[in-house]
Simulated assay, not measured.
Amino acid sequence: MAPTSPAHSQATSLSNPGRATVPLAERPRSSSMGSEDGTKGLTENGIDDLRDLLADIRTWDGGIRQFLVDEQCDLEMIERVMADEVKRVL
């Protein structure tokens, strides 16, 4: 699938396991990602791209937990996400 936006290109480039990653907080953000009132929305393609990225991350060594650690997420968030991951596979 060809990239459709800078954000898509960036998310797609993250699906290369084994390369150094830059924490999400340090990545450039597109000004088109949010509206003037600060709310954000995703297009159908954006949601599909996120699902594809998560599916890819789940195949990496350490999976989602390691990805979140690498992204410097706080422990509480990691535990919440991992609890949801357990529910997802049940």
Score class of each variant (00 low, 15 high):
85 E>K: 10
64 I>F: 03
82 M>Q: 03
78 I>N: 03
86 V>M: 09
83 A>T: 09
60 W>P: 01
80 R>L: 13
69 V>H: 11
68 L>E: 00
69 V>M: 09
83 A>G: 07
65 R>Y: 04
60 W>A: 00
70 D>Q: 14
78 I>P: 00
67 F>Y: 15
77 M>T: 15
74 D>F: 04
65 R>G: 00
84 D>N: 08
80 R>N: 13
86 V>N: 07
75 L>G: 13
63 G>R: 02
66 Q>R: 15
71 E>R: 13
81 V>K: 01
87 K>C: 10
83 A>S: 12
64 I>M: 14
80 R>W: 04
88 R>N: 14
62 G>M: 12
76 E>R: 10
82 M>W: 00
59 T>C: 01
77 M>C: 14
85 E>R: 05
76 E>W: 03
75 L>H: 11
68 L>H: 02
76 E>V: 14
69 V>N: 06
67 F>A: 03
62 G>Y: 04
70 D>R: 15
86 V>Q: 13
79 E>K: 11
83 A>I: 05
69 V>W: 08
75 L>I: 14
83 A>W: 04
79 E>F: 04
69 V>I: 15
61 D>W: 05
71 E>C: 06
62 G>V: 09
82 M>F: 02
60 W>E: 01
85 E>V: 07
62 G>R: 06
62 G>N: 07
79 E>Q: 13
73 C>D: 06
69 V>D: 04
75 L>N: 12
60 W>R: 04
69 V>E: 08
59 T>L: 03
80 R>H: 08
63 G>I: 02
70 D>M: 08
80 R>E: 10
76 E>T: 13
78 I>C: 09
66 Q>E: 13
73 C>K: 11
80 R>F: 08
67 F>L: 05
77 M>K: 10
64 I>G: 01
59 T>E: 04
66 Q>K: 15
76 E>G: 14
85 E>D: 10
85 E>N: 06
65 R>C: 02
65 R>W: 02
74 D>N: 13
66 Q>T: 07
65 R>N: 03
87 K>I: 08
75 L>V: 14
79 E>G: 08
59 T>D: 00
66 Q>N: 10
76 E>A: 14
76 E>F: 07
87 K>L: 15
63 G>N: 05
81 V>A: 04
67 F>V: 01
85 E>C: 07
76 E>L: 11
65 R>F: 03
81 V>H: 01
78 I>S: 06
73 C>A: 13
63 G>T: 05
60 W>M: 02
87 K>M: 13
68 L>T: 00
65 R>H: 09
86 V>S: 07
75 L>Y: 06
81 V>C: 03
71 E>H: 10
62 G>D: 06
82 M>T: 00
74 D>G: 15
76 E>S: 15
63 G>P: 03
71 E>G: 10
70 D>K: 15
61 D>P: 06
80 R>T: 14
77 M>N: 11
61 D>H: 11
73 C>P: 05
85 E>P: 02
82 M>D: 01
60 W>D: 02
88 R>K: 15
78 I>W: 02
70 D>I: 05
